[in-house]
Design a binder for these strands. Structure first.
Lengths: 184, 184
DNA sequence: GTCTATAAAGCGATAGAC
DNA sequence: GTCTATCGCTTTATAGAC
């Protein structure tokens, strides 16, 4: 079902498409989701958020080694988005006028991502203001990489851009974090 | 009509929405666009491309002063996208499975933008490989800024991100371009 | 719980009056 | 060239058999 929404968006994913994608009849779908398509997408978004919470957000927040955590995040992000071949459904939903019922979920997803990454950078002794800025740039950069690589049909662009942002983040952790090493 | 597609996307923008947005009846719309909704969006995309060609791409390509041209681009981009309050229709269309009829227009838009910006940077004596990379980052960054600022409902994020990318580009022109000034 | 049948509404698109 | 009326189809959603 998530892939049906990812491929067609909210308005484009008809119940017949979702039915085929899930292998369930419309009756069954409405049995699971009495709220209809809107509830289906809300469930998908919640599932996505749960996955990111477990694989991306929490590890960033609890990282003992920030640099390793950042590298792991970028590796998982690249795998998750299939090097740009897979769309970010949350970002997509945020674009349209039909986002209103999901606005909170969309906002929460990105706010949490930025917050977790900011916290990770601060663990590496990056000053709060710089950390917040860098995190914002990285999260936005990933979204931009998806848009661009899909538009150009070039997964290489996604990989290049993600690597670049990884370097920016790691440079920051090294610049501030390893200053301690020098001081010792 | 463009705003109707921008607000609702291709599938979400019904003919009745387009009809209200344009003030034209369905009959009139089909008189102008016998190919239906698909032809309407193609025309909108062509119009967008024309605007960018005139205001963004060509000035970048013909810039005598690269730094000024880059600043002008960012200023116009911020105005055009209403600091993130207005979506990039071209990027949006590229996301969905329904993009196929427009894939060439979408690809051309971004390829041209990157190419023009790359050329502008090269005018400032930025080496070709660095220029291409920087241009890709800036264009992707703008797209990411739109996604993020809409998701967070925070136009400030858009402005911050665009300013950052402007600085990155200007730093590059200064680093390579003004070496000449020092040499003189 | 899953299916088929169906209702009611909206869709894209067309025809024809003016 | 613009409108209204309408066609045929798909949509979301529901009802009811099993």
């Amino acid at each position: 079902m998530a892939e049906a929404f990812r491929a067609h968006g909210f308005e484009g994913a008809s119940l017949s498409i979702i039915s085929k994608a899930t292998g369930l009849g419309k009756g069954s779908l409405y049995n699971f989701f009495p709220g209809g398509k809107e509830e289906m997408l809300a469930a998908v978004l919640a599932d996505i958020d749960q996955w990111f919470d477990r694989i991306i957000f929490t590890p960033l927040e609890r990282a003992a080694d920030p640099a390793t955590a950042i590298s792991a995040m970028m590796r998982d992000v690249e795998a998750y988005f299939h090097s740009g071949g897979r769309v970010c459904l949350v970002g997509w939903i945020g674009l349209g006028a039909a986002r209103d019922p999901f606005a909170l979920q969309v906002k929460g997803y990105f706010a949490r991502w930025i917050s977790a990454l900011t916290h990770c950078l601060e663990t590496a002794r990056v000053p709060a203001s710089a950390a917040g800025q860098l995190a914002e740039e990285a999260v936005a950069g990933i979204q931009g990489a998806i848009i661009l690589s899909r538009a150009l049909d070039d997964g290489g662009a996604f990989t290049r851009l993600v690597r670049h942002h990884q370097s920016c983040l790691l440079d920051a952790t090294a610049a501030f974090g390893s200053a301690t090493v020098i001081e010792l």
